[in-house]
Each structure stands twice: as C-alpha cells, then as structure tokens.
Simulated assay, not measured.
Amino acid sequence: MKQIRVLIVDDSAFMRKVMTDILQKDPSIEVIGIARNGMDAVKKNQLLQPDVITLDVEMPLLDGLGALKIIMEERPCPVVMVSSLTKAGAHTTMLAMEQGAVDFVAKTNGPISLDLETIAEELREKVKLAAGATVMLPAEPAKKVSLPTFIKSVEMPLSRKLVAIGVSTGGPKALKEVLQELPANFPSPIVIVQHMPKGFTKSLADRLDTLSAISVKEAEDNEVIKKGTAYIAPGGKHLNVVDQNGEWVCKLGEEDPVNGHRPSVNVLLESIATLHSVSLLAVIMTGMGSDGSKGLERLKEKKVSFKAIAQSEESCVVFGMPKMAIRTNYVNEVVHLKDIASRILSSY
C-alpha cells in the first residue's frame, strides 16, 4: 500500500513533533518533512512534492493564508488547515477554504496545544481524506447577473417553497459559488447544514453574507425563517424546521449526533418531511459519507413534494454525499457546481 506523504507546517517545534507522532501512528501515513513558516512551506512543497500539507494558520514571515495562495498557484496540493478556536482563526480558515484548502482541524486556543491528542483521530482521518480529494482552485470572481424577471414577479406563499442544502468537505467554497449567484429578492427561505464544528459556522455565515445579495446568517432557536435569507445550522446543533401557527421556525437541538454528524442533513430533511404543504428543493453537495440520503428516503416515504439535485463528481472536492444520494434513485438531476444556482432559480 502506497503511503500518504505529508508535509507538516507549523512555527512551533512542539506542535511539529506532536503532529508528526500523531500522523505516523497510522501506517498509511508518512511525514516526509516539516516547515517552520509559510516561506519554508512554499519551498518544501516544490522540493518534496508531498501528497498532503497540514498548514498552520498563524505563522511569521508568511502566514498560512499567504502560503496557501502561492502553493495553489505554483504546485497545487491538498491542504488541511490547522486553526485555533478564535474568531480571527475561524475567519482566516473560511478564507482558506475559499482559496482551495480541502478541510481544517480546529486546535484549542494558545500557541501550544497540549491536548492536540484529543483531535488525533480527526487529524489522521482528514489527512487521509485530503489525499483522495480533488483540489479545487479558487474560482474567478463571479460575474454580476441581472435579476431574473420571473423572480421579480413571483410572490409564492412562504408555506409552499423551501430550499434545503446539505454539504460537508469542500462546502464553504461550494456554498459561496451558489449563494452569491442568487438575487436579493429570492422568493424562498434557504436552510443549510454544513458539517463544521462550533465556532466556525458563525464565521462562515458572516463571510457568505458579505459576498451574497441574499442575507446569510447562523440559524437561531425559535427564529421564523423568511424568504431571501439563508440559515446555516450552528456547529454542534441539529437544525429542525417546524410549523408553528402557520410559520416555519428553526428549532435547534443537541440530541446525539447522527452517523457522527451534528448538525445532520438527515435530521434537517426529516424535519421538513413533517411540514404541511411544503414544496422542497433539496441540494446535496460535496462531502464525505452519506448524510442526506436517509433524509431523501424519508421525504419520499412521507410523500413530500420535492425535487433533488446532486452536485456532479467532477465539481466535488469529495464525491461521497452526492454519490450516495444518487444511489437512492430520488435525485432528479446531477449538476456541475457552476450551474447549481441557475438550476435553483429555474425551479421557480
């Protein structure tokens, strides 16, 4: 079995040693080099030709974001960011996802994380996942499109139309490409589950809100959902949509993870299956695993009016969730990432 060759980049000698030990406990992983800062990382990416790079966010001389940009320009390589659990760290991580990083691991606060061992398994799994992922280079800035005239004239009742999006690895960049193409007067609410830990979904929502004509926010408990707004499930909490006196309301919960996920796409879709008179567009996008497939099956069982779109393999970072959704035979169309927004609009 060919080993996954990893370059570790961190300005802390302690962190470099701990991460090396963690990764090399897996016989399928070989640490072939270390780098002390972003400049060193850029040079060793060219010299060592690693399969995966773990990249610290905060470093001297050239930080992780700057290094990532050069790596993606000179020799694209799957990158797993290692971020601190701070507001600044979360914001930078979201920018890194836009610039082509495959995934990230959140370490605890402080320059030296003594309990990094607590995320050891996550680090190993994400490195292995990254080795098989497709590197998506940063897209060109989206061209501003005029608002569709059919959107301007449509006034659909809130109780009829709803868009639900499920996404995981590669999600921040994919969500950006979809949401920034939707007009401010989009006539339905959008509910989103992005697999991401607590503390990062708020930064993701804030970032997407600045880039999109529609409003994007982290969902709040008991919040009435409104057209023209996208609601992202908070990390660590399931998002349910329930009917209260004719209005659709977000209900957040900390029930057990479903297949390792909280929030879970399945939980979201199963809650939508209980709504009356709903017409749903479900979009399953890039990500590892099968989250969302059981939800589609439940929608079918409950005879909910829905159409399902899956992101195409060539446009996914990881073609796991869309592939498993397609296998349910309840997906109506497989669509390239660049065309998903137009397909959403054409459903109105």
Rank of each mutant, 00 (worst) to 15 (best):
L239I: 11
W248A: 06
R124P: 05
K251F: 00
G33P: 14
S188I: 04
Q3S: 02
M196W: 00
G292F: 11
G253Y: 05
V154S: 09
P189R: 14
F319L: 13
L280D: 06
K176Y: 06
V193H: 10
K198Q: 15
L182W: 07
L62V: 07
L129W: 01
E220H: 03
T93Y: 03
E218F: 12
E255V: 01
D206N: 03
F200S: 04
T20N: 04
I8F: 07
A90D: 13
G287T: 09
T86K: 10
I326N: 07
G66E: 05
E177L: 10
A90F: 13
E255W: 03
V191K: 08
G295N: 03
S146K: 13
S168N: 08
L182P: 10
I340K: 15
A230G: 05
A282S: 02
T20M: 04
V154I: 07
S12C: 08
Q46T: 09
S271K: 06
F186N: 08
G33L: 03
E140M: 14
K302Q: 12
S153T: 13
E301R: 06
S84D: 01
T274K: 01
H261T: 07
A120L: 13
L252P: 06
A131K: 11
D56C: 03
K43N: 06
N329I: 13
D10H: 04
M15N: 04
